[in-house]
Simulated scan of single mutants.
Amino acid sequence: MSEQPESPGLVKRAHLGVLIAMQLVMALELLFLVRDARWMHVFLVVSVMAATLVPVVARKRLPVVIPSELQLLAILFIFATLFLGEVRDYYEWLWWWDLALHGTAGLLLGLLGFLIVYILNENELVDLRMRPSFIALFAFFFGLGIGTLWEMFEFAMDQLFGFTMQKPMLGDPSGLTDTMWDLIVDAIGAAVMSFIGWRTMKEQRKGRIDNWVRRFIQRNPQLFYRGK
């Protein structure tokens, strides 16, 4: 199969443009939060700003070169979850916001789990070849596992700092119904992505995946080749 044309420069420019726009929006919001003395939200916004800036500012110090595509997806998700969801109260305004984000998270985490194992198959330091069905199963449980850890994080933040990350839902004020629906949607998203990955490998339609993996290996040879 012929290689797909790559445009890393375009992706990097899009990543930088989105990052700058988000930082400006959050900086403006930060001024209003400080004015209103909403210190917990000030802390949250500063944390989000730092989390989205670190991979760009300190990229030369990171042990692994993170592709711009993944960085862009990560900052968009963090922005939608913590800034729009928690600070701007989209969880209260839009009843489907939380479910949409968890469904997206399931898809992205399923994709990440799939790529982790797929890349291991390309690593000469790992003498292992895994069947497509195992890779798909790993991707599913990886996505669901990270989703479960996130629900534990929400519970801890609510208990320790008085947040309301676990929302009342369908008449249940405890947040348990919200948590269970979040996990169900996580599982659906992870299952969909795992199935797509399995079909892709079974039918050998791997051109785009191979291109992505090849670029990741070229940027991080120390992870894949002896003596690097």
Score class of each variant (00 low, 15 high):
Asp182Val: 00
Gly207Pro: 03
Lys228Cys: 04
Thr200Pro: 01
Met165Gly: 07
Ala191Arg: 04
Phe141Ala: 06
Leu31Met: 12
Gln218Asp: 12
Leu72Gly: 13
Arg214Gln: 14
Val25Ser: 05
Gly113Trp: 08
Leu82Ala: 13
Met201Glu: 11
Trp97Met: 01
Ile75Leu: 14
Ile20Gln: 00
Arg88Met: 15
Phe114Thr: 04
Ala51Arg: 00
Val185Ala: 04
Lys228Glu: 12
Ala27Trp: 02
Arg38Glu: 08
Ile217Val: 15
Phe195Asn: 00
Val42Tyr: 03
Ile116His: 02
Gln204Tyr: 07
Thr104Cys: 10
Met22Gly: 10
Gly162His: 06
Gly147His: 02
Ala100Val: 05
Gly147Arg: 00
Met22Gln: 12
Ile196Ser: 04
Val45Ala: 00
Pro63Cys: 04
Asp89Glu: 14
Leu176Thr: 05
Trp181Val: 10
Arg131Thr: 13
Arg38Ala: 06
Leu223Met: 10
Asn220His: 02
Gly9Val: 00
Trp39Arg: 04
Lys228Pro: 02
Trp39Asn: 05
Asp89Asn: 15
Glu92Leu: 12
Met40Tyr: 12
Trp39Gln: 06
Leu170His: 02
Ile75Gln: 15
Trp181Phe: 15
Gly147Cys: 01
Leu30Thr: 11
Ala37Met: 13
Ser133Val: 00
Phe163Arg: 11
Leu72Pro: 13
Gly113Tyr: 08
Ser133Gly: 06
Glu86Val: 13
Ala27Gln: 01
Lys228Asn: 11
Thr148Gln: 07
Leu24Met: 10
Val185Glu: 10
Phe79Arg: 05
Ile146Pro: 06
Ala136Ile: 00
Thr148Met: 12
Gly17Gln: 05
Met157Phe: 12
Thr179Ser: 10
Pro132His: 09
Gly162Pro: 09
Ala58Met: 12
Leu112Lys: 01
Gly110Pro: 08
Phe153Asp: 00
Val34His: 04
Gln23Thr: 07
Phe224Arg: 09
Phe153Met: 07
Asp178Leu: 07
Gln4Tyr: 02
Asn220Cys: 05
Asp127Gly: 11
His102Ser: 08
Gly227Asp: 03
Ser7His: 14
Arg88Leu: 14
Lys206Ala: 06
Trp212Phe: 15
Ile75Val: 11
Thr104Phe: 10
Thr52Val: 15
Val65Arg: 15
Glu203Ile: 06
Asn220Val: 01
Pro8Cys: 13
Leu28Asp: 04
Lys228Met: 11
Ala156Thr: 14
Gly207Ile: 08
Arg88Trp: 08
Lys202Val: 13
Pro67Gln: 07
Leu10Cys: 03
Leu107Gln: 04
Val185Asp: 05
Val185His: 05
Glu86Gln: 13
Arg215Trp: 08
Met152Glu: 03
Leu53Ile: 07
Asp158Leu: 02
Arg208Val: 14
Pro168Thr: 12
Tyr225Phe: 15
Leu101Trp: 03
Leu223Cys: 02
Ile20Pro: 08
Leu33Trp: 01
Arg35Val: 10
Ile119Trp: 06
Arg215Cys: 08
Val65Glu: 14
Ala14Ile: 11
Phe161Gly: 10
Leu31Trp: 12
Pro5Gly: 02
Asp178Ala: 08
His102Arg: 01
Gln222Asp: 10
Leu111Phe: 15
Leu10Lys: 14
Val11Ile: 15
Tyr90Cys: 08
Met193Thr: 05
